[in-house]
Computed example of a mutant assay.
Amino acid sequence: MNNATLRIVFEAKNEKSVDVKSEIAYAMSFARGFLCDGGEYKIKLDNIAVEIVKADGTKVMHAISSLAALECIASGEPIEWLSKTIFQDYTEDFVQSVAKRKVSDLEKGMREVIAKVLFDKHGARWWLMSVSNTVRQSTERMYESQEGIATTDGGELIHFTFLLDLRKIVVSNWGDFVHIFKSQARFTQLLDDLNVIRRAEAHNREITQQQLIALTAIHKELMDQIAAHMPSAVSYYLVENWRIQLGSIFESNIEEHANIASEPCGIVEAMHAVEGQIRRFIDLEVRVRSLLVPPGKEVLNNRLVMLLGNVRESLEQMLSAAQAGDADRVVSLQSQNERANQELSQFREEYLMSELGT
């Protein structure tokens, strides 16, 4: 434990994601009951973090809740607690669901970009003009078997293709896709690697952490390439990617804030701590500004940048006053900094947790 975050680690009793979250809720509720007396905590505390592991130390789930989020458990509002708590879920059923979603994202994005590029070049007959006989015939047979009618409409048939079919279509028309995927050898390797994971996912075999890491890297590389040329095909990906990056930024923010809170309290050390906080908030501003913001999220992102800037500016003014030896102004600016931090924290609770929550 440090001055800001209580860390609890214990071995999991359950395997499914929903059951493990119940374990976490129980642990956090117990910790709150032990540390909180009449609404007042016995120690200085901002967050409670829980890490659940297997007997061999393998991660199962991590979670971090603010004290405000914990009050949702105490008041019998578990859904609110879930929405305001940051989770890192490594349970098998959750990993499987993430894998399915990422594979589905890639298949949808690939199909849309293929249909768009080849339609733009060849028109409505693109399926007949650009797809090999082998892929065309097997896909048309599947469509007829499932739909009961025959068609040569590529806009319909593309949705009945498999990953290896998509790879073959792109490679056989490489000149039309080189501006998107750049390297044919790299593209082929990514699709082959993806297909191995796709087979495991399709047959509900366990997806290992190593496979999920590999899938995430493949997903990001290909979806970034598609999004750069055809954002409309992957708007859902842009939103998800923005949320993931925001979650990462704020998770690191919590950890760094906890470290700063444990610094010595001498005047020189305090000034060094403020300098460190200024650098941290400059970094946060730069990272948030650099995000690729999806349509409809610009106001939220800009508001966050402004609030981060308010905290940074108040810290800079505090440091300047301290260096000038103006103690009264330091005290006044400290109150201003606390208000800026409170506004940022409230914004994070009310708005960002609705984006980053489960």
Results as ranks from 00 to 15, higher is better:
Thr151Asn: 12
Val117Gln: 11
Thr152His: 08
Leu128Trp: 01
Val131Gln: 03
His122Ile: 06
Met129Tyr: 07
Ser138Glu: 14
Ala124Ser: 09
Trp126Gly: 12
Phe119Gln: 14
Glu156Tyr: 15
Met129Ala: 12
Thr139Cys: 01
Thr152Gln: 12
Ala124Arg: 06
Val135Ala: 05
Glu147Arg: 02
Glu147Phe: 01
Gly123Gln: 06
Trp127His: 01
Ser145Trp: 00
Thr139Tyr: 01
Ala124Asp: 08
Asp153Thr: 02
Gln146Met: 09
Ile149Met: 05
Thr152Trp: 06
Ser138Leu: 12
Val131Tyr: 05
Thr152Cys: 05
Gly155Lys: 07
Ser130Gly: 09
Ala150Arg: 08
Glu147Thr: 03
Lys121Gln: 14
Val135Pro: 04
Leu157Met: 10
Gly155Phe: 08
Gly148Asp: 07
Trp126Leu: 14
Val135Tyr: 03
Gly154Asn: 02
Ala150Leu: 03
His122Pro: 00
Gly155Asn: 13
Lys121Asn: 14
Ile149Arg: 09
Thr134Ile: 08
Phe119Pro: 05
Arg125Asn: 15
Glu156Gly: 03
Leu157Ile: 09
Arg125Ala: 13
Met129Phe: 08
Thr134His: 09
Val131Met: 06
Leu128Asp: 14
Thr139Asp: 00
Gln146Cys: 04
Lys116Ser: 15
Ser132Gly: 10
Tyr143Gln: 05
Gly148Ile: 09
Tyr143Asp: 03
Trp127Cys: 03
Ser138Lys: 15
Ser138Gln: 14
Asn133Arg: 14
Gln146Thr: 06
Thr134Gln: 12
Asp153Ile: 05
Gly148Val: 07
Lys121Asp: 15
Ala124His: 03
Lys121Cys: 13
Thr151Gly: 10
Gly123Asp: 09
Arg136Cys: 01
Val135Cys: 05
Leu118Ser: 02
Leu128Cys: 07
Asp120Thr: 08
Glu140Cys: 10
Glu144Trp: 00
Asp153Val: 04
Met129Gly: 00
Arg136Gln: 04
Leu118Val: 11
Asn133Ala: 09
Asn133Cys: 02
Gln137Trp: 04
Ser130Pro: 07
His122Phe: 15
Asp120His: 09
Glu144Ser: 12
Tyr143Trp: 12
Val131Arg: 01
Asn133Met: 11
Ser130Trp: 07
Glu147Cys: 07
Ala124Leu: 04
Gln146Asn: 07
Thr152Pro: 00
Ile149Pro: 00
Gln137Pro: 00
Arg125Met: 12
Ser130Gln: 11
Gly148Met: 11
Thr134Asp: 11
Lys121Trp: 13
Thr151Leu: 12
His122Gly: 00
Gly155Ser: 12
Trp127Ile: 01
Lys116Trp: 02
Met142Tyr: 04
Arg141Tyr: 05
Glu156Ala: 14
